[in-house]
Amino acid sequence: MKVYIVTAIAVTLFFGCESNFKEVQKINYSEFTPGGDADNVNLKYTDSGLIKVILLSSKMLDYSNVEFPFTEFPKGIHLTLYDAKAKKTRITAKYAVSYGLTNIIDLQGKVKIASEAGQMLETEQLYYDQKNEWFFTEKKFKFTDLKGTSNGQGIDFSKDFKVINSQRITGELESEE
């Protein structure tokens, strides 16, 4: 009989401590919730009266309330970038995160970028440095323009496709050199 009583007390203490441990864990746990949540976003960024960027997304989560602030687009993004002559560069991705302190946008999932001049790049992940207006990735990519199509891994380029640096590339392209 004593064995059953001791066992019952030990089990009770064990489960009682488990419950307290979970409560202690909750005290040190901080909620990671967005400071803002928006649906069907249509944002236009202007500079000196000219539209520079149009951002469309069905869902935007703003985490400006955390130590390293960012904005998340969990349902994808459609960006249109305009240059000084109002030429468009269109970008789509299934997911995106914009980091406020670094001005880097991380585009993921069937990323496609196309210029008015007919250049198009497709990849699974692409970063955009907003300050320098520069794209880069180490992922595999497919690049198409009027001269042909090439595939490769690792590329960086200006938003207007005037400067392109590719790493491992396959396919045929005409060169001006």
Rank of each mutant, 00 (worst) to 15 (best):
I51R: 01
F136T: 10
N42K: 09
F157N: 03
I91H: 09
G152A: 00
K139T: 10
G152N: 03
L121P: 03
T71G: 12
F32M: 14
I51Q: 04
Y82D: 02
E133W: 10
L61G: 05
D39L: 13
S30A: 07
T33R: 08
K110L: 10
L126T: 01
F68T: 11
I155D: 06
E122K: 15
A117C: 07
K75W: 10
L107T: 00
S115M: 00
F141E: 02
I155W: 07
A96Y: 02
A93R: 04
V97N: 12
N40T: 09
E133V: 15
P69E: 04
F32G: 12
N103G: 07
K85M: 15
F141Y: 10
R90W: 13
Y29T: 12
K110W: 14
N65T: 04
P34D: 04
F136Y: 10
K142I: 06
N151A: 09
K75Q: 13
G35Q: 08
F135P: 01
V66S: 03
V53P: 13
K44F: 14
A114F: 10
E116Q: 10
T89Y: 03
S30K: 13
Y127R: 01
T137K: 00
G100P: 12
F143L: 09
L43Y: 09
Y99P: 03
Y128P: 00
N151K: 14
F70Q: 07
L126Q: 03
S58G: 11
Y99L: 09
A93S: 06
Q125T: 07
P34Q: 06
Y45C: 09
T92I: 14
L43V: 09
N65C: 02
K94H: 11
Y127L: 12
H78P: 04
K75A: 07
Q108L: 11
S150P: 13
